[in-house]
């Protein structure tokens, strides 16, 4: 582009391209282009002026990714996380006015670009699961929902129990929820071994609650999530795993107390 012969549209396309394309380098032709379009100042060349925007663009979005995927960034380490984040941002530049959705496609991007394509390894699976969980948490945190503060009591009959309006179940190959909670508590968790895990995420009074649960509890609550009553969910669980009904009857009061205390149920 020559000076003084470009339209507003051309100028904005040119500048945006200079910001988001990492390929732009120290090519003399590019530098001449910048000199044709941008003023130099007493202290800085035209290229240096543009560089301030170029550097800020990727640094700002990288920082947003780090905020949204804090546990993943910790787990991967700074350099590796930035490498993945930069590649993701180049392939998926933001097209929303909201930064809350910036990382929406990051778990799928990690899956599609996993570094062990030739010989599968375990650790990328953990990272992908963790990324998916972290993005899900941010979506649940801000989702539109009418929360129900009508908590059940010990006297509420089983038939009066229903799941809280914001209630999500997760089933992972790795102990994702425990890892995430330890990260939040600044316990610096180690990369975990593969171990099936289950958890519940609730939102009560606009705050998230994360609860690791057992497999049987997951399947019981999954039935309720599909609209079944407590009695129906119990029947399904007993049938599915061939449990002894008396044994379930013995453990149910403990589950019930725990679920009510954790805010899983409302009336």
């Amino acid at each position: 582009m020559e000076p003084n012969n470009f339209s507003l549209i051309q100028l904005q396309n040119w500048m945006q391209g200079m910001l988001i394309e990492s390929e732009v380098n120290d090519d003399p032709g590019v530098q001449q282009q910048v000199n044709n379009i941008v003023n130099s100042s007493k202290r800085l060349s035209a290229v240096r002026h543009l560089d301030i925007y170029r550097q800020s663009y990727i640094a700002r979005l990288r920082a947003c990714m780090q905020n949204q995927f804090g546990a993943l960034a910790y787990s991967l380490g700074k350099d590796l996380f930035e490498l993945f984040a930069d590649q993701y941002l180049e392939a998926n530049p933001s097209n929303s006015y909201s930064l809350n959705t910036l990382g929406e496609k990051f778990p799928a991007f990690l899956e599609a670009t996993r570094p062990d394509a030739q010989q599968r390894e375990i650790w990328p699976d953990f990272m992908i699961e963790l990324a998916g969980f972290e993005y899900a948490l941010s979506a649940i945190f801000d989702e539109q929902a009418v929360e129900n503060d009508n908590k059940p009591t010990n006297d509420t009959p089983d038939g009066g129990l229903k799941l809280a309006p914001v209630f999500y179940l997760f089933h992972h190959r790795f102990p994702i929820c425990n890892y995430y909670l330890e990260f939040c508590q600044n316990k610096k968790p180690e990369l975990p071994l593969e171990q099936e895990s289950f958890c519940v995420v609730t939102r009560s009074n606009y705050k998230l609650g994360l609860f690791p649960i057992r497999g049987a509890q997951y399947y019981f609550l999954e039935s309720m999530k599909k609209g079944k009553s407590v009695a129906e969910a119990a029947d399904e669980l007993i049938g599915k795993f061939n449990f002894n009904r008396n044994e379930f009857g013995a453990i149910w009061p403990e589950w019930r107390r725990s679920f009510i205390a954790s805010g899983f149920f409302c009336r």
């Binding site: 925007y53 947003c64 530049p93 933001s94 097209n95």
Partner: peptide, 20 residues
């Protein structure tokens, strides 16, 4: 301006200041 072609740089980019 923050971007064109439906992209958003999430920066407050400078406007060329002319009649157009």
């Amino acid at each position: 301006w923050t971007g064109v072609n439906s992209l958003n740089t999430h920066d407050l980019l400078p406007v060329v200041l002319n009649d157009e």
